[in-house]
């Protein structure tokens, strides 16, 4: 009798822990794609500079460096901890990200990496994080070492050129701006014109 009870208790514990252990996406793909354009999780360079220079809020913020340990050793934001991107899903690291006690500020070796990490957390329903756009090198050169007026407005997604103008202002071989409505890449079959039957006398 006791045996069975023990077995049952153990198996119930095992089963429930199994389901809790697996982390799931809180957002479906549809929801995630609707929220993807949201820039709320991006830490502006200005705010980053404030945090770095004032230093007062450091207790509430935690910098997380997603690069490889070797790069991390060569230099990182002061007080940052190193969680290489590929180990993000390991259990202990997951807890670091989910920890509600503070705000995580995530950066990586490229903007892309930071966005991958940020969007991943967004889909898991984690809310207490920011990502920094720009690679570590960019942060180092333009915010930590030499803060200038341009660093404050850094956002790679902003249109930096008037594409259509660049294309159309020049007399290139082809002009692809939408206004001119040139045929696009998809091959259109050109109908061969049959030469009209020559009439009569030659």
């Amino acid at each position: 009798m006791k045996k069975y009870l023990i077995i049952i208790i153990i198996s119930i514990i095992a089963l429930t822990s199994c389901t809790k252990e697996q982390r799931r996406f809180k957002l479906t793909v549809e929801e995630a794609s609707k929220q993807a354009v949201d820039q709320a999780y991006v830490l502006s360079p200005q705010l980053l500079a404030d945090i770095l220079y004032s230093g007062s809020d450091l207790a509430t913020y935690k910098f997380i460096d997603l690069r490889n340990p070797s790069k991390f050793e060569n230099g990182h934001i002061e007080g940052a901890i190193n969680i290489p991107f590929r180990t993000m899903n390991k259990n202990n690291n997951c807890k670091t990200f989910i920890d509600q006690g503070r705000v995580n500020i995530i950066y990586g070796e490229s903007t892309e990496q930071a966005i991958f990490a940020g969007f991943f957390l967004q889909q898991l329903g984690v809310k207490n994080y920011f990502i920094i756009l720009g690679s570590y090198d960019f942060i180092k050169n333009n915010i930590i070492d030499n803060y200038n007026i341009y660093s404050a407005h850094y956002n790679p997604e902003i249109v930096q050129y008037d594409y259509a103008k660049i294309v159309s202002e020049t007399s290139g071989a082809q002009n692809y701006s939408a206004k001119t409505k040139k045929p696009t890449g998809t091959a259109t079959f050109k109908r061969k014109k049959k030469s009209a039957a020559g009439g009569g006398c030659d």
């Binding site: 794609s33 993807a36 903007t111 966005i115 969007f119 991943f120 756009l133 790679p156 997604e157």
Partner: peptide, 18 residues
Amino acid sequence: YSNSSDLAVKAWMLTSRL
């Protein structure tokens, strides 16, 4: 593609979920 790779990165992530 988008203006930079930002949107593309997110889209890539969603498509790989699918």
